[in-house]
Simulated scan of single mutants.
Amino acid sequence: MKLLSAIVPCYNEEANIADFYQEFIKNELFFMEEEIEFELWYIDDGSKDGTVSEIKKLIEKDGRVHLLSFSRNFGKEAAIYAGLEKAKGDYVVFLDADLQDPPSLLPEMLGFLEQGYDSVATRRVSRKGEPPVRSFFARMFYQLMKKISKTEIMDGARDYRLMKRQVVDAILSMQEYNRFSKGIFGWVGFETKWIEFENVERKKGETKWSFWKLFLYSIDGITAFSTAPLAFAAFMGVLFCLAAFVFIIFIIVRKMLFGDPTSGWPSLVCIISLISGVQLFCLGIVGQYLAKTYMEVKRRPIYLIKEEITASGREDLDERAG
């Protein structure tokens, strides 16, 4: 029999844990017919509410449910990577606990793997329920990434993705600290089938992704899979050097022809302010790449485990890390 590993990152999802399990388990008859066993890994990303308690309740009644709990909040990217390390399945799938990734799509996704695809990914065809400003900037981000990166990142792509073991092993081979999974999925390649579905709003609770967090996440994506900002900074440097050279020639010629009038201070201040702003902007771009390099060379673990509970029993693993 084949084994399906389902990875469910959780952060303060107490209200959704049981509901997600009930929705996921509706596929059990299909799994039995297709001779597929499953394991369900809840990855607790340092939740402050009763998320861990709710997961433990499920473990008591279903041995296929497992828990990996972090020592603090390390972020969804760390939870995804930890889940991949724990997953033993021939097939591995990511789903959000808030039910925005419908488990009901799994039979269709597994069908495409049987047809020969290496992975099946999902994308939203609408952003119903999202604030208009957030939707606008999200679309701008994907359009920008298409232009500046060689890695394919699909507009509206979700982390909801089903993969064969070969793809999982390829992703695990990328052990970088600054992770951007949507880019990593595209970078490793393999033949991927895209499934489109209407946006599903959260079952309960509120999103943990504020506009500011999404903005910082987008910066991570740009710097992780494109060096175009560095090329832009270099281009701006050359452009303003040429402009300064032309302006110096202009000043010399004006001096020789008309003397040295004192007018033009406002325009001079504006020019200095503009050039200074561009210099600081370009320095900030370089600083972002330098910061990413700094974090990589420190080789800190991507996550630290506080507790792990599997069918074989409980382990407290504060010293273990990924």
Rank of each mutant, 00 (worst) to 15 (best):
residue 252 I to R: 00
residue 202 R to V: 04
residue 41 W to H: 11
residue 4 L to A: 03
residue 253 V to P: 06
residue 10 C to P: 13
residue 191 E to H: 11
residue 219 I to N: 07
residue 87 A to W: 12
residue 147 K to V: 10
residue 283 L to F: 01
residue 282 C to R: 01
residue 132 P to G: 00
residue 309 I to R: 03
residue 198 E to M: 03
residue 236 M to G: 02
residue 168 V to R: 06
residue 8 V to T: 11
residue 316 D to C: 01
residue 308 E to W: 10
residue 74 F to A: 13
residue 161 R to C: 15
residue 33 E to M: 14
residue 181 S to C: 07
residue 38 F to V: 04
residue 6 A to D: 07
residue 263 S to M: 14
residue 290 L to A: 08
residue 115 Q to S: 01
residue 83 G to L: 14
residue 40 L to Q: 00
residue 161 R to S: 01
residue 161 R to Q: 04
residue 158 R to W: 11
residue 116 G to P: 07
residue 291 A to G: 05
residue 200 V to E: 08
residue 98 D to Q: 12
residue 148 I to K: 03
residue 83 G to K: 14
residue 141 F to R: 13
residue 36 I to Q: 14
residue 159 D to H: 03
residue 211 F to Q: 10
residue 30 F to C: 12
residue 242 L to P: 02
residue 52 V to C: 08
residue 148 I to F: 09
residue 31 F to G: 11
residue 55 I to T: 01
residue 199 N to Y: 09
residue 84 L to Y: 02
residue 17 I to F: 13
residue 268 L to W: 08
residue 307 E to Y: 14
residue 283 L to N: 11
residue 238 V to I: 05
residue 231 A to G: 15
residue 94 F to Q: 11
residue 40 L to C: 09
residue 159 D to P: 06
residue 232 F to T: 09
residue 293 T to Y: 15
residue 52 V to T: 04
residue 17 I to Y: 15
residue 44 D to Q: 15
residue 244 A to M: 07
residue 19 D to S: 09
residue 53 S to E: 13
residue 2 K to T: 14
residue 12 N to P: 10
residue 313 G to L: 12
residue 51 T to E: 15
residue 66 H to K: 02
residue 181 S to W: 14
residue 191 E to G: 12
residue 20 F to G: 13
residue 86 K to N: 14
residue 231 A to R: 08
residue 296 E to C: 00
residue 80 I to Y: 09
residue 51 T to S: 01
residue 113 L to C: 09
residue 186 G to L: 06
residue 249 I to Q: 06
residue 78 A to I: 01
residue 201 E to R: 04
residue 129 G to E: 04
residue 61 K to M: 11
residue 54 E to C: 06
residue 166 Q to R: 15
residue 45 D to E: 14
residue 29 L to W: 03
residue 209 W to D: 10
residue 319 E to N: 05
residue 138 A to W: 07
residue 148 I to H: 03
residue 174 M to H: 00
residue 43 I to C: 09
residue 108 E to W: 07
residue 226 S to T: 13
residue 48 K to E: 12
residue 14 E to P: 03
residue 137 F to R: 15
residue 71 S to R: 10
residue 110 L to S: 12
residue 108 E to K: 12
residue 230 L to G: 08
residue 202 R to Y: 09
residue 217 Y to W: 12
residue 247 F to Y: 10
residue 92 V to N: 00
residue 204 K to A: 05
residue 251 I to H: 06
residue 205 G to Q: 12
residue 238 V to Q: 11
residue 167 V to E: 08
residue 312 S to T: 14
residue 231 A to E: 02
residue 227 T to Q: 11
residue 56 K to M: 06
residue 280 L to T: 01
residue 164 K to V: 02
residue 289 Y to M: 02
residue 270 C to H: 04
residue 100 Q to C: 10
residue 286 V to S: 12
residue 176 E to Q: 13
